[in-house]
Design a protein around this nucleic acid. Structure first.
Length: 793
DNA sequence: TAATCGATCTTTTTT
DNA sequence: AGATCGATTA
């Protein structure tokens, strides 16, 4: 199965270990009696830190260089843009020609496919991609008076349905959402989306599959072109993506997928571990190569990580071996609460960085931490760390706040990965909606978003009027036709809006110089390559200015108005890399939609190279850090409370992913108390801490009673248990408030009841606060915001 | 009809 | 604690 190169081994291959080499040299050549043109598929099970990316990139280069494979016939798909970029870069370093191979994310490949072949499914090539918010907005127009939460649920259902390659008519839909109306809404949504002429995220995968299935000639063309298909992070593929892979593969296609079943963490997004577990069944004749040498982490770190994931049932099984020796023992710290947790992390980091010329800035304020990082025995005698060596990992984005506050206070540089996203900002979405409407005049969602922003006197009634008149067609045309019927105010507003849009479109076609101008749409390469004021940014700047969006946001937001302006400027800068014509605009919008890694401006100044990384467990996939702190390892937080069975297994894998990011040092923190939704709750150590191999841990802090005593179950009741809370204020269900009652309100402080009277909704209580404020409350029985103190009389 | 204040809900994780 | 909803009010 393996065939080595004939002569001396080139240097780019010499650095590979035997398994990696086997994986690179595998070409799936058929045996005797098999179709000589067929290829055995390959599944590379690549453990964390086993040099997976090196194998893929080397393989691509090797195929081109030694096997004479045409680079253009190679397709490699990843899940993130970052991975795609990295892969392209590294493959090109080995062989320049690898730059001609197609390296894309699944979604970007789908978009590329649809721009060229979408017409076969009735899709105009000038579509815009709707994100989740747009999907919700579209559903909202379909479902008036439906609570937002429910709409979101339906949107989620539709997204999942597409992940599983299910259409409104599919019986399997019941597994997603069994309510009868669901498939009806899904069907209407599809209809409306088709009418508008845009696609959502799921369509980028689902539609290509449909086209490939219904158009044999297209399928043939693609199978002809792509002779080699590689998939990275295959454990994250969903059913639709699996189907797409299947459709792209002819009998002669060489398929190679790389993944790690232990790192499958996107089930909630439709990822199916089954895809990788069953790969040998779905792709008969598949060979499997395991990469089990880990070059990243020390022995105890790997041991700690594996000991947890070993508790999973459904695994292909794999034994990671460290090539890095013993190193420092991972530390598990039990801490009183999340403030102390942040404090602990800060001091740990500061003490490691000291002597490195970086300011430690002595941590004023509370110094009475019960757990001193130094006590961990991690004297950083010789080697000082850099801030950038450190990463703080947490389960939910919300947990970053405490660390940010503490780091800010102490002057520890940090950057938050992936929480506030640039493209999710209101002003950016507004600007993008304007641009989208230029491209697609049928885009009701974009139209609704910006037609009256800033307020132009175009109210909901007018907007509904226009959309109704458009009958799914060009909204601009419809609006124009309706102008005479509108009130003077609305007419003026709509007129202004239309004029602006027309000018924008004119700008695009002006620059176009007709269709025949074959100006190469510029690829975003180097941000500095073009300056703002060039390319598409002219259009963005003009629209943002003319629309009044810039002023609107600057006025409306006194605190961060300028920040918003900066963000808009940043958007314009990004646009400068694209050609100032319709194609360039489409490309720009697609780029924005699919690669949302553009950083928020607020991160910019902190992004100095030397900063601590604050990041969710999910976001760390594919990254590595010298020193990692996994925080909030508490039952209910991680794993989340509602996780069972397969989902619990996925949480375990997430733990595994997090722990295996660490190269040299690993710390785990678990708090006895934590503020959740603003209330302080007692916490228990995570189940995973019970599962972890204690022989590779150093435990510090106040160990919860019974923890680690090995005395079987029941040993995990850490922390003090509080009852349901204090007395419910007063007697009776409605609180039993009377005139003269004194109370404390969380927001307003002390006050007294001056009047109680009945209404249809229940008793209305009027309270005079010490601040002088007098407020009326419909009911005071909620308990949490009010505390009854006593009575005056 | 916008603004304001109280009530209620929120926390997964993301291409 | 913070965002968002939604009802009441000027």
């Amino acid at each position: 199965m393996t065939e080595g190169p004939a002569a001396p081994i080139p240097s780019y291959l010499a650095m590979l270990n035997p398994e990696q080499r086997e994986a690179v040299f595998h070409t799936g050549r058929p045996g005797d009696g098999e179709n000589p043109d067929s290829r055995h598929p390959l599944l590379i099970l690549a453990g964390a830190g086993s040099g997976k990316t090196r194998v893929i990139t080397t393989k691509i280069a090797w195929l081109i260089r030694e096997k004479g494979v045409d680079p253009r016939s190679i397709l490699a798909v990843t899940f993130t843009n970052k991975a795609a970029r990295e892969m392209a870069e590294r493959a090109r370093l080995i062989d320049e020609r690898a730059g001609d191979a197609m390296l894309r994310t699944f979604h970007s490949f789908g978009a590329w496919f649809l721009r060229r072949n979408g017409s076969l499914a009735g899709l105009d090539s000038a579509f815009v991609i709707y994100d989740d918010d747009d999907t919700v907005a579209l559903l909202a127009t379909l479902l008036e008076d439906t609570p937002k939460a429910e709409i979101k649920q339906i949107a989620h259902g539709i997204a999942r349905a597409k992940d599983y390659f299910l259409s409104p008519g599919d019986p399997g839909l019941d597994l997603i959402d069994h309510r009868k109306q669901f498939r009806r809404i899904y069907a209407r949504y599809e209809e409306r989306l088709a009418q508008i002429g845009n696609v959502d995220f799921g369509d980028l995968i689902k539609k290509p599959v449909e086209i490939l299935r219904s158009q044999p000639d297209v399928a043939r063309r693609f199978r002809d072109r792509f002779r080699v298909i590689m998939v990275d992070e295959y454990q994250d593929a969903n059913i639709a993506q699996f189907e797409l892979l299947k459709e792209l593969c002819g009998p002669e296609t060489y398929v190679c997928v790389v993944g790690d079943d232990d790192q499958s963490i996107y089930r909630f997004r439709g990822a199916e571990v089954r895809n990788i577990l069953e790969f040998p069944d779905r792709f008969p004749g598949a060979d499997i190569i395991r990469l089990e040498r880990n070059y990243r982490s020390t022995v105890p770190i790997l041991r700690a990580a594996s000991s947890v994931v070993d508790h999973n049932e459904s695994r292909l099984g794999k034994e990671l071996r460290s090539e890095r020796g013993q190193g420092k023992t991972p530390v598990l710290a039990f801490l009183p609460d999340q403030d102390e947790e942040a404090n602990f992390c800060a001091r740990l980091i500061e003490s490691s960085v000291k002597g490195n010329g970086q300011s430690g800035k002595g941590g004023g304020g509370k110094s009475s931490s019960s757990v001193k990082p130094g006590a961990a025995g991690q004297s950083n005698a010789g080697q000082a760390a850099a801030f950038s060596d450190w990463a703080i990992l947490y389960r939910t984005n919300a947990q970053s706040l405490g660390f940010e506050t503490e780091f800010l206070r102490r002057g520890i540089p940090y950057r938050v990965v992936g929480s506030l996203k640039f493209y999710e900002r209101e002003e950016i979405k507004d600007a993008l909606a304007l641009l989208s409407f230029l491209v697609n005049p049928r885009d009701e969602i974009a139209f609704r978003r910006v037609v009256n922003k800033p307020a132009r006197g175009v109210g909901p009634a007018t907007v509904d009027h226009i959309t109704a008149a458009s009958d799914g067609g060009d909204l601009g045309v419809a609006a124009k036709g309706l102008l005479p019927e509108l009130s003077a105010k609305a007419r003026a507003g709509v007129g202004t809006f239309l004029k602006m849009i027309e000018e924008g479109r004119a700008l695009l076609s002006d620059q176009d110089g007709g269709k025949e101008s074959k100006q190469q749409p510029r690829k975003p390469k180097n941000r500095e390559e073009l300056r703002a004021g060039e390319g598409l940014s002219v259009l963005v700047v003009k629209l943002v200015k003319d629309s009044g969006i810039a002023d609107y946001h600057q006025m409306n937001d006194e605190i961060s108005g300028n920040q918003r302006l900066n963000n808009l400027q940043e958007l314009a800068n990004a646009a400068s890399l694209y050609a100032p014509n319709m194609d360039g605009l489409l490309e720009f919008l697609e780029h924005i939609e699919l690669d949302r890694s553009l950083e928020d401006d607020t991160n910019k100044d902190k992004t100095k190279d030397n900063a601590v990384t604050l990041i969710t467990f999910h976001n760390t996939k594919g990254l590595e850090f010298r020193r990692v702190i996994m925080t909030g390892i508490e039952q209910g937080i991680f794993p989340r409370e509602d996780k069972q069975d397969e989902e619990l297994e996925e949480e375990r894998r997430l733990f595994y992913v997090g722990a295996t990011r660490a190269m040299d040092e690993l710390y785990l923190t678990s708090c006895a108390m934590r503020r959740v939704f603003g209330r302080t709750m007692p916490e228990e150590p995570s189940l995973f801490l019970r599962e972890i191999d204690k022989s590779v841990l150093r435990i510090i802090g106040n160990v919860p009673y019974g923890f680690g005593s090995g005395s079987g179950s029941g040993g995990l009741t850490g922390g003090v248990r509080f009852g349901k809370g204090r007395d419910e204020g007063g007697s009776g269900k409605d609180g039993g408030w009377r005139r003269g009652d004194r109370l404390y309100h969380d927001d307003h402080g002390y006050g007294a009841v001056v009047e109680v009277r009945d209404s249809e909704e229940g008793p209305v209580v009027r309270v005079q606060f010490e601040t002088g404020k007098e407020l009326r409350f419909l009911s005071l029985h909620q308990g949490s915001r009010f505390t009854k103190i006593g009575r005056d009389d």
